[in-house]
Design a protein around this nucleic acid. Sequence first.
DNA 1: CGCCCGGTTGACTATGGTCAATACGTGTGG
DNA 2: CCACACGTATTGACCATAGTCAACCGGGCG
Lengths: 246, 246
Amino acid sequence: MANQAIVEAECKDCPIRHNAVCARCEREELDKLEEIKYYRNYEAGQTVCWAGDEMGFVASVIRGAATLSQTLEDGRTQMVGLLLPSDFIGRPGRVVSPYDIIAVSDITLCCFRRKPFEQIMHETPHISERLLDMTLDELDAAREWMLILGRKTAREKIASLLTIIARREAAMGLTAASGPLMVELPLTREAMADYLGLTLETVSRQISALKREGTIILEGKRRVRVPDMHRLMMETGDDVDGGVIA
Amino acid sequence: MANQAIVEAECKDCPIRHNAVCARCEREELDKLEEIKYYRNYEAGQTVCWAGDEMGFVASVIRGAATLSQTLEDGRTQMVGLLLPSDFIGRPGRVVSPYDIIAVSDITLCCFRRKPFEQIMHETPHISERLLDMTLDELDAAREWMLILGRKTAREKIASLLTIIARREAAMGLTAASGPLMVELPLTREAMADYLGLTLETVSRQISALKREGTIILEGKRRVRVPDMHRLMMETGDDVDGGVIA
DNA sequence: CGCCCGGTTGACTATGGTCAATACGTGTGG
DNA sequence: CCACACGTATTGACCATAGTCAACCGGGCG
């Protein structure tokens, strides 16, 4: 079954082969990575790494969802990254993770010990170029996120999150292209709150409000039906029609 | 005088030679860049580029401060980048800027037309490696910023901003290393509000409060004396002593 | 001189946070 | 099979923080 832990697999069969940091690698470049890679599985809720811990490896997410987050001394936490399949974990050249990394569903990582990876990266422009592109995309996403955190209302934040998740699921080809859309939330209400800089109560209230008004339909707690995507996007506060959809 | 518009200069005399995207370039690599570079000056308040505009060049900030920001249709705006000397503007491979870029003081940019720059970058790992490093640093900064936007109180936000600016000025070697610190704010109250996701009134009130309590001393509106940096850092909500200062 | 811009301060309000009770669903054990 | 407990989610009552609207200050420039 596809959702089981993966222990061994070949790169050519990898589901993220053409999206991950290795996307642009040629045959023999891939062979070098294949030689040093190994898989790790974590269960939902497990911590991959605490902020301040040494991390001996970098990795690509193959399956499941993980979060990057930061915590203030008094316990307030802010999610700063949502890692889905093909996303990269770790920073070449840095030993200590400044973020907590937590599996929010069962996940599989394709890991590379840091040193050999850095060596290969140095010899392989296809990898560092791809990593630059991915990092620039992350930076754009972080900046969109900053707009959400700094300037949007609770309601707009929820609508934005639903839209973002729908977009990412669509990009991975998991959803029917059109028609009433289904969004599968990989996050608990609390995790959504940490994503959006809200409390879980406010998240719950706003979801209830959107449901009451018919903008979304809940099917269970974690599955959302969107009868009219355009209507949901109207609630995000963004410019829906005009502007450039980069 | 050092603060005048710059029209012509050689790379070897450039104040950001060892911090910008060209930092790791060898002699002849630098020559190639020198050949295609040109300077542009903008006055405080001028717009370098509106979101959605085509930008024919990428650039390094040599002098002054500029902001990257995003605006919602109803006018709410969030700053998503504060560009100081040595910071890079633009994204290789992208034609249209998704952000407004605005000079907040008089600035000088070292510009490269996009196409030739991309060409040189492709042939010059020293440039793309440096750009990757800078982008990863930006991403870390964006994530720290997300924590500020999502979880900190108005008071903590102000203290954090002062600390960040002090840190950046110190890194550029503009300040005496220790003793009562001077911080030169490159931003108006409104720009600080856009940085922090606050209103300008709240910024003003919190600055007044910190002044009233003696944590900071204003010398004019834009110059802040910090008698005890540690005390200011206590107000940021961050873990001051423990934790890893990355 | 008077205007304009940036900044400060005050009074009032609204949004979202806090604390607490309750509901729901699933797995465990009697 | 049902009872219970635990984790997750919902809802309500109340409150605090920051936003809104408005008046006012002060310096620089035409």
